[in-house]
Amino acid sequence: MTDTTQTERTEARASVLSSALAALPRPALLLAVLIVLLCALVIAFGPVRALQATVNGFVAGSYTGLGAIGLTLVLGVLKLVNFAHGDLLVTGAYFTILFAWLGLPLPLAMLTAMLATAALALATEKIIWQPLRLAKAGSLQLFLSAIGLGLVLRFTVQFFAGSQVRTLGANVVTSIAIGPLRLGTLQALALVVGISAMVIVGLVLRFTSIGKEMRAFADNRALAEVSGIDTQHIINVTWIASGFLAALSGILYATAIGSFNPNFGITLLLSLFAATVLGGIGNPYGALVGGLVIGLSQEWSTLLFNARWKPAVGFALLILMLMFMPQGIFGRAKRRS
């Protein structure tokens, strides 16, 4: 009952907007809005520019969505705002550089990097988060621990790799032409891998028992615990998934953007938060969709504004969502008790 008043009031504010839209199922409504926007952009800027921006938006959307899944699961399952999550993306990208430097072929280096980051995420659970939970740490302690971990990760990377701009080492400058659209080979690869990964993750969450348990847990922890789910097991799997997907997201970002430095995680973090809030906290499908919406909005915005304002679109969406729809586009107001 702690936040009843706040929830009530935000509900009241949100209800003006949502009651008008409540008649339609949310995913259909969202799809309709996106298609209308795309049509408007096609009319205003011509099909080539609009579709090019859309393809770029899917690339950005895939790494944003995959990155946001871990954030939303950790937030839903552990009630932890993981400020260090962006730095897990960075860790994944730099692990790839490390393993490639050690002699692994690039695809294998990427896979090893994802496994290593998953192991690292699990290690943070054992070393940091589990003991804090057992000590019934307050929210300030959790926030500060997450911030501390983020600093340690980012600057450990920077300590060894330096702050200069790097690439993953597979800089192919060729591009593919699909009709009038052009896509860098690496971007195309990132797009294919990203979209397939999103589909696979969606299927795993939907059909495997661990996926179902994780969603149940993130949705309503008390209920899930009563129904006899092994809590610590779910938490461990959540961290492993969070680390693995964070690394995948970081590698996709590094591949698609081409060059990066250890600060890209903290820069990307707010977009990840935006995708999380957009999709509804604790809802991994929501995070995927939220990521796509953020990616598309950012790339579409480049048709209207200078591209340097791209990150600002993510911030703006985050703030607007928090103010008017804190439950997310698919969320409904929950009774708290």
């Binding site: 621990s145 501390g148 340690v152 600057f155 300590f159």
Partner: peptide, 12 residues
Amino acid sequence: IIVGVFLLLISR
């Protein structure tokens, strides 16, 4: 890194 480790330690 020192600031980060410090935040982790003192929170705990």
